[in-house]
Design a protein around this nucleic acid. Structure first.
Lengths: 221, 221
DNA sequence: CGTTGTGAAATGATTCACAGCT
DNA sequence: AGCTGTGAATCATTTCACAACG
């Protein structure tokens, strides 16, 4: 990987979109793709696609384009999703259950190793093949499974405490579904999925008339 | 609203984060907040907070800061979430059920009016107070309820068809949970929530060591 | 005082445009 | 011919820095 320093944040955001699209092309039997073609379907310019990919190495073949299989493999290696990422889930409510049952996760490199909840009524029940455990077993399970990712599906009030427990247990990154801002040390990565934030942006863009709000690429994510 | 033309996209993205934080401050009894304080908790500079808000009017009081109640109200009006947004949900699987049962939605201005699924086994069952309807009733229900938003929780293979059905029925914006890129006309707003994309970004940032990947503001969303 | 609102400067990202490879 | 990789130019966003205000 020729990583000459700074990778622009927007490039990082697009990386998994490339992989998703390439996989879809691959499954449709395509062999090669040009930066132009890939850009067209993702709403990006060809130059942008080339710049993005060039941050990580020289994967293209002048006159030909990119070999899809090869590029996908490289990008997966760069993203780290060629390895398996064991994860724990805290919160066995609606969102937690949806996440646990999300079948596509393992094939993308993420595997739920254990599920936790605070509620004694829920502890001991089965969800998607996992017995829900009490929070007291979190640290032990994170260690035993080498989990680096925690998915936080607890209610907003508990979210900060859960985050701290996850971090203390050794989790390195948190996918946060609770609609609150978490305060975490800088070595811990955080991404939040907040349904109401997404809906509010959508509502605003509908109000705006979209025309100006829509630059093609962030309609995608 | 003094909307002198172009509102930068990053500003739009931050708008609902401001509202969320202001509401939390309000509920803790605070009266006023300075751009500095608000920026600190959100990981933004004070100048950025002021620039963002200044796009929409002059809400601040020099020497004092912003009156939280007043500012929240203004921002909600700007986002359009002072009104109610009727919505329909297509797909009564794990994600659909989680969305439908998400209690906080109505208080944020979004109300699920009807739920649809393709599967005859599921049609007719009750979820969160809604009887699941067949897709054939989509257009009629969208019209009857004045739904402008559609939440798309169908499987990937069906997503493009569902999106087209929603749009034909009159939906103006789609919140897409399916892990595919949707092709829609430019008047339709789209936001996607893709679990695997979020996890891949998280994995990449953990691999990177975060240090460089983390600029404070997008840890939040 | 402390804090806003805002031009001007600095930084960051995208697009242009083309040399060079196949 | 077709396409990549990349410096240079453009465009967008953020930060600086300060006058004006309560």
């Amino acid at each position: 990987m020729r990583n000459d320093g700074r990778i622009p944040r927007p490039t990082i955001k697009r990386l998994s979109l490339y992989v998703r699209e390439l996989e879809s092309m691959l499954s449709r039997g395509a062999q090669t793709v040009s930066s132009r073609q890939l850009g067209d379907v993702l709403g990006l310019t060809d130059a942008q696609v080339r710049k993005d990919l060039a941050h990580f190495g020289q994967f293209g073949h002048p006159g030909v384009g990119y070999h899809i299989g090869e590029l996908t493999e490289q990008l997966r290696r760069i993203l780290g999703t060629d390895q398996q990422w064991p994860a724990v889930v805290v919160g066995a409510g609606n969102i937690g259950r949806a996440v646990i049952n999300y079948a596509r996760l393992p094939e993308k490199g993420f595997s739920v190793m254990a599920v936790f909840d605070r509620d004694p009524e829920v502890i001991g029940t089965e969800i998607g093949g996992h017995t829900v455990r009490p929070m007291s077993e979190l640290a032990e399970q994170v260690r035993a499974n080498g989990a680096r990712i925690g998915m936080l599906a607890a209610p907003a009030e508990a979210a900060q405490d859960v985050a701290e427990a996850m971090i203390a247990a050794g989790v390195r990154g948190i996918l946060n579904f609770a609609p609150v801002r978490l305060t975490v040390p800088p070595q811990v990565a955080i991404h939040s999925v907040d349904l109401t934030v997404s809906l509010e942006r959508l509502a605003f863009e509908i109000t705006l008339g979209i025309d100006q709000a829509n630059r093609r690429d962030d309609r995608i994510e």
